[in-house]
Design a protein around this nucleic acid. Structure first.
Lengths: 127, 127
DNA sequence: CTTTGTGCAAACGATTTGCAGGATG
DNA sequence: CATCCTGCAAATCGTTTGCACAAAG
């Protein structure tokens, strides 16, 4: 438990915006002494291995990290790339497939795509 | 419609192993004249734009392409990275969430993770 | 002949890694 | 004091792009 890990945790825990490494790096640097980007990568990776964080991979963009490890799913904005959480008990009831191929599924996650509030076309007041 | 596009289509269409750009590139080169990797990237991207192929993003690994555009989901082997298809009508019935945030979901995909037949620990005959 | 595609090599962005010095317990 | 962590810079890896030439319609 080092100074830089404490700084990272302080900035990371509780966030719901699924920050990228760069976002975290910038925010930590803003708060106090700069912390090397490589260290952010290494520390986040360690957190994932320890089960204290999750990775949210997004095609063609920097990987995002999520401090929430409860079972939940994600909404990905197709326009701005924002990621939101979805907690839905109905989804948790999904049964795992047992294909003829012999694949044994152990877990799953659902990725919804669409437009976030900021990017969605307005209904009433025209944009 | 060029020679190289025909070669790529011949190799790509009908495959169910979700090849990466490198895999396709290697397989095409094996079959006949080499085709530049950049061209493979460009052509696959074109296919995706035309709705004739889909991208299957996998964290930390090269992006995979899928010639099957019907609605289906994927199984990802945690050990070897193999990707299999899952066709499941039950999944298609999932309703889209309408979170308070205002996010408007339009589509979704389910990614199951686990171990493929080759990587799963054997039951009867010990490994 | 005009447009579009290809090959090549360099550019890029995200992430990883080797190494030497520094902090931690 | 032995171990683990950090900073730095260079190395990787996947992917994209500029450009000159070749192929397609």
């Amino acid at each position: 438990m080092t100074v830089q890990r404490r700084a990272l945790l302080a900035e990371f825990v509780g966030r719901t915006d699924h920050p990228t490494v760069d976002a975290l790096h910038a925010d930590i640097g803003r708060a106090q002494a700069g912390l090397n980007r490589a260290t952010v990568y290494r520390t986040l990776e360690t957190l994932v291995e320890l089960g204290l964080a999750r990775r949210v991979a997004v095609h063609g963009a920097a990987c995002r990290y999520d401090p929430c490890v409860e079972r939940h799913h994600h909404l990905l904005c197709e326009r701005c790339g924002a990621v939101e959480d979805v907690f839905d008990a109905a989804l948790d009831a999904l049964r795992l497939p047992r294909p003829a191929s012999g694949f044994v599924a152990r877990d799953f996650s659902v990725l919804f795509t669409g437009l976030c509030a900021g990017c969605a076309p307005r209904r009433t007041k025209a944009h």
